[in-house]
């Protein structure tokens, strides 16, 4: 069941569209923002709200990489793996994260605090390598800086 708040947010987001289905991506993002990820139940909630089937919504949800169909940690670290960051030392930063938090890309720490995902160019190439945690972007990341950055997210 969608909560009232979710419902209100969805109504608001769908206002601009000529039909409800157009809001499917917005709906997924809104619900995900509140619930962390899109479970099968969330998927069906959204589908019902939009007058779609679970298959309809899942087809969309699985296409986009910012929609999580599996649970994620309390915080998500997106590590840019595109070209400029790769040149400037992405691999070392990645290795550091693995070492400090014992997770591979795509995994969540055992305490459920952090999920680390690779992401395409974050648009901060002049400050490569770049790392985004939740909504905050960090540039010129070095292996040494990793822990002090991540420590801000409990």
């Amino acid at each position: 069941m969608l909560t009232d708040i979710e419902r209100r947010e969805l109504d608001d987001a769908l206002k601009h569209y000529p039909d409800k289905r157009a809001g499917a991506i917005d709906a997924l993002l809104i619900v995900q923002r509140r619930r962390g990820w899109i479970s099968d139940d969330s998927l069906l909630d959204i589908a019902q709200f939009l007058g779609m089937t679970g298959d309809d919504v899942d087809s969309i949800a699985t296409f986009y990489n910012l929609i999580f169909r599996k649970p994620v940690g309390r915080h998500v670290a997106f590590l840019c793996d595109s070209i400029s960051c790769w040149i400037m030392g992405y691999e070392q930063v990645c290795a550091q994260i693995k070492k400090s938090y014992e997770i591979d890309l795509g995994q969540t720490t055992r305490d459920g605090r952090l999920t680390c995902l690779p992401i395409a160019c974050l648009g901060h190439c002049e400050r490569a390598p770049a790392l985004m945690i939740d909504q905050d972007v960090y540039g010129d990341v070095t292996p040494e800086k990793v822990e002090s950055i991540v420590e801000k997210y409990k």
């Binding site: 070209i83 400029s84 395409a120 160019c121 648009g123 901060h124």
Partner: peptide, 11 residues
């Protein structure tokens, strides 16, 4: 949608 690797001008 600026996602072209290496591109950050629109941002």
């Amino acid at each position: 949608d600026e996602m072209e690797p290496g591109t950050f001008k629109d941002r």
